[in-house]
Design a protein around this nucleic acid. Structure first.
Lengths: 227, 227
DNA sequence: CGGTTAAGATAGTGTTACTATCAAAAAAGA
DNA sequence: TCTTTTTTGATAGTAACACTATCTTAACCG
């Protein structure tokens, strides 16, 4: 099977982890450990032990653990955009594309593990729980100048285009799309940990409810209202 | 001037900082320092130096810096709910109440400093930048059991009631309200740091645009659609 | 075979997030 | 006022964390 690789912003890493065996083990163990420990408790030392390597070796790939998180999240956005492209390219109307997009965003993840060294379900949980920490920092502006949020922006732009095609007069396409992307994650987190802040039921019905909620918000917002 | 105090969940602190002079200096300096340094770079040591006290003394008030952040955010929610009550109590219809609520949420903050030791504008910036970190942790469930997110939940419930009054058939009142509360913060952050993820303009027009965006999303979502 | 590059091994540094102890000062109670 | 309790300050110490540096070995490349 041919390995599917993503071209990620080279500022995210010092050495490209996709190209070496140690690099892949770093990614693999990071996903597993951040998922189980949470980003705060995760350290390069613990991860190095997990893969029988050393802290020093890990630092040759990533400047620090924040960059590593940025890398994982960038990878996630690329992967999501790849799947969205896959499922929308055959669709004709922007309305259908947007709908398909929401379905993918809200879907319960049961993946064909197309990537040998990435546990996509664990990565999905990481994004739900840690996404906001990638940009809610004091270095957000310099990180942004380096283009480290390119994956998020690119996706936001693409979906925004469809919103504009559906209703060219709608004044907040990017605000609505970034809200859509974040809300998809936050509501999953609330459903799991703070259920009184949401109306999503427990699994297995959670994901269809999330899809309906997001559809309701997005399509009603951009619809012309005939009062 | 009578000091207006909030009754906050006692699990948030070890000693109530509102009741002592040192406690008030701790709160005051924390708001200032978290605002300028960001929560990650903020330490009890730096703060203790700022107020010419010691780390040990600070630890007598707060178990750790995460609890301190929870405290500040809880204070913020109480303060917001207080102001929402103030401006909505005279209004008759739930529609007007919800509208007023969105106006307050989106308002540019220029405050009468009714609280001697809290810089409300700095606290507002802190909530925008650090709110999500209060619950995006591995201890979220135990923190929740202690009731540390009570302020958020209480506000969400109150606003949710109005949503239900406007449209009793709407199935996602709490999901919509939590989205409203978070989105108000996130879009402000994006407008400041990642403008391509939003459509809000620079100040001074940012806040009216945010208000319109939020109104659009909320009222269109809960409106009955006559297709 | 020689030269480059990647990885492992080890050590060290300054900082963070605490915990512990003891004494001084301030407040409260009798 | 004297005494007791409570609060604060001062100081010290610890384990873990986030790196940085250096040196050696192993692998690979022409």
């Amino acid at each position: 099977m041919p390995t599917l690789n993503f071209k990620l912003n080279p500022h995210l890493f010092l050495r490209d982890p996709q190209h070496t065996e140690l690099g892949q083990r770093i990614i693999s163990a990071s996903v597993k450990l951040i998922d189980t420990l949470g980003f705060e408790q995760f350290t390069f030392k613990k991860m190095a032990e997990e893969i029988d390597s050393t802290e020093a070796s890990v630092y040759r790939y990533f400047e620090n653990k924040h960059r590593l998180l940025l890398y994982l999240v960038a990878w996630y956005w690329n992967w999501l955009e790849y799947r969205i492209d896959l499922y929308t390219s055959s669709l004709a109307s922007p309305h259908e594309k947007l709908k398909a997009c929401i379905r993918i965003l809200a879907a319960e993840k049961k993946f064909d593990n197309s990537f040998e060294f990435i546990d996509e379900e664990a990565l999905h949980r990481i994004v739900v729980a840690e996404l906001d920490k990638t940009y809610l920092t004091k270095q957000v502006d310099s990180d942004n100048k380096e283009g480290l949020f390119g994956g998020f922006k690119s996706l936001c732009k693409k979906i925004g285009t469809w919103v504009c095609e559906i209703n060219p007069a709608y004044p907040y396409p990017h605000a609505l799309v970034s809200t859509l992307l974040l809300t998809a994650k936050h509501q999953q987190f609330f459903a799991e940990h703070l259920p009184s802040l949401t109306n999503l039921p427990q699994v297995p019905n959670r994901y269809t409810a999330l899809e309906k909620f997001l559809e309701n918000v997005v399509f009603h917002s951009i619809a012309e209202i005939h009062a």
